[in-house]
C-alpha cells in the first residue's frame, strides 16, 4: 500500500527549515504544507501509541493546532521532525495517563475503545495475519509507555537510532539496549497471548 508518509523522506533539511520559519512568521500556507507533509506520520504515531483511530485522529488535530500557536518555541536545535515526534509521543502518554486516572474513578464510564483490527485490510489478507495483528495489539496494550514509544517510532516509523536518541533524549547506546529490552518484553507478551 503506497502511503503518503513516504513523501516525508523527500523534504530536505533546508526545505523543512524554510517551512518552519514561514510558519513562525504566521504563514498559513506554509502551515498547510507542513500539515500535509506530516499528517500521516503524526497520525500513525498517535495510532500506534493510543490504539484506536478516533483518538489518533483527535490527537493529530490537537497536535497541529498546538503547533500553529507554539511553533515559535522551536529553536532549530534538533530536526523539526524529531521535535514534532517528541511532542506527539509525550502528548499521547499524557492522554493515556489522564484516561487511566479517570478509569480509576468509579463514577466514570469507560468508553475507551479497545484495539480494533484495521478495517482497510483487504479480504484476501490471510486470517493468520489478522490474528497476528490482534495479538500484537493486545500485547501493545500491556506494554509500558517507554517501550511502546520506542517500538512505535522504530517499527512503524522506521526512525534511525540517531533520530530515536534525539526524540527520546538519550544516547545511541541507550537506544540500542532499550530497543532490545522492548522487543524482548513484546515478544514475551505476544507469545503469552498466542
Amino acid at each position: 500500500m503506497p502511503l503518503n508518509t513516504q513523501v516525508a523522506d523527500a523534504l530536505t533539511k533546508e526545505q523543512e527549515k524554510d517551512l518552519v520559519i514561514r510558519c513562525q512568521d504566521g504563514d498559513k500556507r506554509a502551515m498547510e504544507a507542513l500539515i500535509l507533509h506530516y499528517q500521516h506520520w503524526v497520525y500513525n504515531i498517535a495510532y500506534g501509541m493510543l490504539g484506536n483511530r478516533e483518538d489518533a485522529s483527535d490527537m493529530a488535530q490537537e497536535v497541529f493546532l498546538w503547533l500553529w500557536e507554539n511553533i515559535g518555541q522551536f529553536k532549530f536545535r534538533s530536526r523539526f521532525s524529531t521535535w514534532l515526534y517528541r511532542i506527539v509521543t509525550n502528548r499521547c502518554i499524557n492522554l493515556k495517563d489522564q484516561k487511566k486516572r479517570r478509569q480509576t474513578d468509579p463514577t466514570e464510564i469507560d468508553d475507551s475503545q479497545p484495539w480494533v483490527p484495521i478495517d482497510t485490510e483487504t479480504p484476501e489478507k490471510s486470517v493468520l495475519r489478522l490474528e497476528q495483528q490482534e495479538i500484537l495489539q493486545k500485547a501493545l496494550g500491556e506494554l509500558k509507555d517507554d517501550y511502546r514509544k520506542i517500538l512505535v517510532l522504530r517499527e512503524m516509523q522506521d526512525l534511525s537510532y540517531e533520530e530515536l536518541a534525539e526524540v527520546i533524549g538519550c544516547s545511541v547506546g541507550r537506544v540500542k539496549s532499550k530497543l532490545h529490552e522492548a522487543r524482548k518484553v513484546l515478544r514475551e507478551l505476544v507469545l503469552q497471548f498466542s
Binding site: M1, L65, G72, L136, E155
Partner: peptide
C-alpha cells in the same frame, strides 16, 4: 513482530482538511 507492526500503519484521515479551518488568524505567538 516488526513486520506486524509495520502493517498497522495506514492512510490517515484528512487531518489537514479538519485542522486548517480551525487555525486562528492570530497565528503563532
Amino acid at each position: 513482530n516488526r513486520q506486524c507492526f509495520g502493517a498497522l500503519k495506514h492512510e490517515a484521515p484528512p487531518i489537514a482538511d479538519l485542522v486548517l479551518p480551525q487555525l486562528s488568524d492570530r497565528g503563532p505567538v
